[in-house]
Simulated assay, not measured.
Amino acid sequence: MFKIDSFNSPKESAQALAIEIAAQIRRILSVKAHAGLAFSGGKSPILFLQELSQMPLEWGKCRISLVDERVLPLTDPENNALLLHTHFLQNKAQAAPFAPLVLDASVGTEELLKHARASYTQPDLAVLGMGEDGHTASLFACAPEYENALKSPEPIVATTPTSAPFKRLSMSLNALESCQMLYLLISGDQKRAVFERACFALEPSLPISYILHSQKVVCHVYCA
């Protein structure tokens, strides 16, 4: 299930999504002690993260986590945690507690998963991105662990995409569908074409289609 909102520019889309997420945080905190938010990495969400960081919210009650992470040192420029520290955990949002998915990139996969699962708290909301190959989070159709990522009851899975660098940890499809709401932020003609293809039907080669056609959660799509 999905709903689409279209905008004239990535800036407009980012601003609108920041306003929407702020409203949802206020709603959640009106009935719960804490709100959980999971964010994607990459360049696409930077404008949105910067906008959201300036919203006057009770950030100390917001638990921030990542949808996925590359298995890299915390100081690596490709690290999603570093991206959040640079573009989001600033301004008013610097008070928000944040839990990285990967603390020590030198340990083995089982140790990485053990830590990530032990510290996992189900987020209320997650903001997703999408690649031009249709992947979302680090659910890649090319990864040998893809089927496990779609079916696993565990909240965090390991994936090793053959079409992208780095081993990764990612929220599983089950964890994503356990959110109250999902948001997808996309821009550009190429991604729009892939998205429109995924809208027609569930297509295993396009991981995002599992989100768009989920019967468990609604995905709100912000498209520029």
Results as ranks from 00 to 15, higher is better:
Val157Arg: 02
Cys179Ala: 15
Val67Asp: 02
Gln24Asp: 07
Gln54Gly: 10
Ser65Phe: 06
Leu150Ile: 12
Phe39Glu: 01
Phe2Met: 07
Ile211Gly: 00
Leu52Ser: 09
Leu206Glu: 05
Ala143Tyr: 04
Glu203Arg: 07
Cys179Ile: 06
Pro153Gly: 01
His115Gln: 14
Glu20Gln: 13
His135Val: 01
Leu169His: 11
Thr136Lys: 00
His34Thr: 15
Lys114Phe: 10
Ile208Lys: 00
Ser9Cys: 13
Thr136Ser: 11
Lys92Gln: 15
Ser205Glu: 10
Ala175Glu: 08
Ser172Tyr: 05
Gln215Leu: 13
Ala149Glu: 04
Ala193Pro: 01
Ile156Pro: 06
Arg27Phe: 10
Val31Arg: 15
Val157Ile: 11
Met55Phe: 14
Ala201Cys: 13
Val71Ala: 03
Lys151Met: 09
Gln122Ser: 11
Pro10Phe: 13
Asp124Lys: 09
Leu173Asn: 11
Asp189Glu: 14
Ile46Glu: 07
Leu74Ser: 14
Lys151Ala: 14
Ala33Trp: 00
Ser106Ala: 15
Thr121Asp: 10
Ile25Ser: 02
Asn91Pro: 05
Leu72Asp: 01
Leu169Ile: 10
Gln190Leu: 11
Phe140Lys: 01
Leu202Ser: 08
Ala224Ile: 01
Gln190Thr: 15
Tyr222Thr: 09
Gly129Ala: 00
Ala23Cys: 04
Pro73Cys: 02
Pro77Cys: 10
Ala201Ile: 01
Gly36Pro: 08
Asn79Ala: 12
Val157Phe: 03
Ile64Asp: 02
Gln15Trp: 04
Ser152Tyr: 04
Leu182Ala: 04
Ile208Gly: 00
Glu12Asn: 13
Ala96Leu: 09
Asp104Ile: 07
Trp59Ser: 01
Ala143Trp: 03
Ala35Asn: 08
Ser65Asn: 08
Ala96Lys: 05
Phe195Lys: 04
His87Asn: 13
Ala35Leu: 07
Pro153Val: 03
Val127Arg: 06
